[in-house]
Simulated scan of single mutants.
Amino acid sequence: MTDTTIPAVEDTWVEQGQEISTPEQLQQYVSQLRAAASHMQTGLGRAAWGALTGRSWLDTPGDERPNVPTILSEHLEMTVTPAGMTATDATLRQSLATLLVALDAVDRATLTTWLAQVAAQDPNRTA
């Protein structure tokens, strides 16, 4: 994939964000952000799987397809670089792990925002 194959998109996140003026609009915006981050995490996890195993997600039988936490734990996360792994490979794996964890942090933060809005409206409402 080259940069020329990535379609140019407008900065809709900024455009949408600058038009928000109510808590309800903020809640909808945060929901959209959460969905986008979730899609990015899934896509990046599947791309990492393909790059690390040499077999694309689609070419992997369904019962062998790991989820993102499994990809992280079995292929990316490391506290010590395994013997024989090159610095380039270790850097790639560490950066992919960091991106996937950051996307998970976005998911958790957006959930917290939603919970805060619910609690502000009715502190005794069940989540």
Rank of each mutant, 00 (worst) to 15 (best):
A109E: 14
L44E: 13
L96C: 04
E10S: 03
T42V: 10
A36D: 15
D11S: 09
L52M: 07
D3Q: 08
H39S: 13
R55Y: 01
H39V: 11
T86S: 15
A47D: 08
A36C: 13
D11F: 06
L26V: 07
S31M: 03
R93D: 04
L100R: 05
M78P: 05
A51L: 04
S31P: 01
P66A: 00
T79R: 15
V14Q: 13
T88A: 08
I6S: 00
N67D: 11
R93Q: 14
T88S: 07
L44Q: 07
E15M: 07
T98G: 13
R34M: 10
I20H: 15
A97F: 02
A8P: 10
R34Q: 15
G54Y: 03
A120K: 12
T110I: 02
D104E: 12
Q94G: 09
N124I: 09
L76F: 02
Q28N: 10
L103S: 12
T81P: 09
G84F: 09
R46D: 08
T53S: 08
A127Q: 13
A97R: 07
A127N: 14
V106R: 09
A120E: 11
Q25E: 14
A102T: 03
H75K: 06
D3M: 01
G45V: 03
D11W: 11
G54L: 01
L99R: 15
A120I: 05
Q28A: 07
E15T: 06
A51Y: 11
W57F: 01
T2V: 02
L92T: 07
G43V: 04
T86E: 09
E74S: 05
T88Q: 08
L99H: 15
H75W: 06
A120F: 05
T53V: 00
A51E: 12
E77D: 06
N67F: 07
